[in-house]
């Protein structure tokens, strides 16, 4: 069966806005993704060596608490994203194992680029206290100064450096 067309971007944006608004109204905070990954890493490290996490100034902020680091709304939210994305892919016939890349590069190049990009995003989202969803999008929606700096910094850097990575995309 043929893949269905993507949703109108303004309709998608409006619906996404309503979802984010309900997150604020119901739970008091917006959306996020990198927080769940951070907490997964922290609980893995804690499982391997609790002594190590207890001695770390960073890890201990999450592990020396009454509540488990995974007992956080963002962890549940990201599990939801996984399922929501899958449902959407299923109803629109887009479920397919593949490596998407520009015809100018090989699958191997794309995989290397994806891993470098992921690592950078992992580090950057920790330094910046949140990623595109948590810091930039939810931040802008609450009119926080951090949200706007984050958005300008992420997309500004992207535009500044886009020229050097052109062949990887088009």
């Amino acid at each position: 069966m043929k893949e269905k067309k993507y949703m109108n971007p303004y309709l998608a944006g409006f619906l996404l806005g309503l979802i984010m608004l309900s997150a604020f109204v119901l739970t008091g905070s917006g959306l996020g993704a990198s927080g769940a990954m951070k907490r997964s890493v922290i609980s893995c490290v804690d499982k391997i060596s609790h002594e190590h996490t207890s001695n770390s100034e960073f890890y201990s902020k999450y592990t020396n608490k009454e509540t488990h680091p995974m007992k956080n709304k963002l962890v549940f939210l990201v599990f939801g994203v996984l399922i929501g994305g899958f449902i959407s892919g299923a109803v629109s016939n887009r479920l397919k194992l593949k490596i998407e890349h520009s015809p100018k590069i090989t699958s191997k190049t794309r995989i290397i680029m994806a891993s470098i990009g992921g690592i950078l995003f992992g580090i950057g989202s920790q330094i910046g206290r949140g990623c595109t969803s948590g810091a930039a999008l939810s931040g802008m929606a609450t009119l926080s100064t951090a949200g706007f700096i984050s958005m300008i910094s992420i997309f500004g850097t992207g535009y500044l450096l886009a020229y050097f990575f052109k062949k990887f995309w088009i």
Binding site: M37, G118, L120, T132, T157, G158, F168
Partner: peptide, 17 residues
Amino acid sequence: GGAIMGLGFIIGGFCPG
């Protein structure tokens, strides 16, 4: 942090979400 994420975005093509 944003600048590092921007670099990650243009290289990797995704953000965490």
